[in-house]
């Protein structure tokens, strides 16, 4: 349907992103913010950070999910309109990295999101922290999948 393809094109040209920092060490969050600043400037691809998951197409998750953050993260995911996808930034969001054995974490972000949505579309960006170039590469890959 033409309307759908227009929608798809608009989505790919201007994905809106909501960033959830789930108990990480801050490093990935800073590299994500770095993507917005002059050297990397993802806004030239139409990527915008927005203030609410209800406005977002992509959920950016960084850090392992602590027990306290688990419910808020799931809530943010469920509030997002479809089609939706998540970009898991950093090794902690992908597989918990250095915090694997810690008692305060509920699990890696993919498992926490899949608890409420087994079909969730996820793209993994490993690294501790991933360089901004890597985050942008992951984002481009995700846009191809949407």
């Amino acid at each position: 349907m033409p309307a759908t393809s227009l929608f798809d094109r608009a989505l790919r040209k201007s994905p809106w992103v909501f960033h959830v920092g789930t108990s990480g060490c801050n490093n990935c969050d800073i590299e994500i913010a770095d993507c917005l600043t002059p050297r990397f400037d993802v806004e030239r691809f139409g990527v915008r950070l927005v203030g609410s998951p209800r406005h977002a197409d992509i959920l950016l998750v960084s850090g392992p999910v602590s027990r306290a953050c688990r419910a808020p993260l799931q809530e943010a995911w469920l509030e997002m309109p479809r089609p939706r996808a998540a970009l898991l930034v950093g090794v902690c969001a992908c597989s918990m990295g250095a915090y694997r054995d810690a008692y305060g974490v509920a699990g890696p972000a993919d498992r926490v999101i899949r608890e409420v949505d087994p079909e969730a579309k996820l793209v993994y960006v490993p690294g501790c922290p991933p360089k901004p170039e890597t985050i942008i590469a992951g984002l481009v890959k995700l846009l191809g999948e949407l």
């Binding site: 990480g24 392992p64 602590s66 915090y99 810690a102 974490v105």
Partner: peptide
């Protein structure tokens, strides 16, 4: 402010002195 508590001090007690600075 308890959203980020992961238990890193406890984790450090299960790592050798060589590994702790990296953690």
């Amino acid at each position: 402010m308890d959203y980020i508590h992961k238990g890193l001090e406890r984790l450090a007690q299960e790592r050798t002195y060589d590994m702790v600075p990296i953690l």
